[in-house]
Amino acid sequence: MNTLKFLKRLAALGLLIAFFLPLSQCSTPEQNISKDPPTQSNQNAKVRQSDGIVFAARMDKDDALLTLTNGVAFFWPVLFTLLAFFRPEVEQSLSIRLSEILLCLGSAFILLRLTSFGTLLPGGYLGWSALGIYFAITLFNFIERIRRTWQVPA
């Protein structure tokens, strides 16, 4: 197997794993605005609420469209990898490669939205590095394919 294909599959798997890991944590502490004296259950609830850890899987429970967008941003590389595994001729298509580049940019926007308001956690580091590797390999393959397509015979 080609080294770039292996790295691309590994990056797709890394992005999928990052979906389930904590991505970031809010860096500013939340103030307790409650006027009742803190009880044990009250303190536990406050710790859970002010923890500020962001997971892509639990990010937007109230808005189904944003939750779906988060899922697509992390799962599409695995779908393209499976497509390339079962139908290798599809991987050579310019439209597939261009779609991958555009989806990488969209995933970068979603990942930026999920990680920009706090300190990065292991899922954030894994997500950014996997997406960067996937994007670099996809862009390299796209440019190589364009060069082979437009090459004028000598």
Rank of each mutant, 00 (worst) to 15 (best):
F80S: 02
L114F: 02
Q49Y: 03
S93N: 13
R113V: 09
A73W: 14
L65C: 07
L94T: 14
L82D: 03
L82T: 05
I96M: 13
D51P: 00
G52W: 02
R113P: 00
R48T: 04
R113S: 13
A108S: 06
S107I: 08
A56V: 01
R97P: 05
V54D: 01
L82F: 15
L102I: 05
F86D: 05
L94Y: 12
R87S: 09
R113C: 04
L105F: 02
L82Y: 07
L102A: 09
S50C: 03
R97C: 00
S95W: 06
K61Q: 10
I110L: 07
L105C: 04
T81A: 15
T69S: 09
L82S: 02
L105G: 01
D60Y: 09
D63Y: 01
R48V: 05
I96L: 15
L66Y: 02
A108Q: 04
R97S: 11
M59R: 13
D62Y: 05
G52Q: 06
L114W: 06
I110Q: 10
V78P: 08
F85N: 07
R58V: 00
L114D: 03
C104L: 13
S93D: 03
T69F: 08
I96G: 02
L105S: 01
F75W: 01
L98W: 12
D62V: 05
S95E: 06
E100Y: 11
D60R: 12
R48Y: 00
L112I: 08
K61I: 11
A64S: 14
G106N: 14
I101K: 08
I110V: 14
M59A: 09
S95Q: 11
R113G: 08
P88Y: 15
L66A: 09
G71N: 01
L98D: 03
T69M: 11
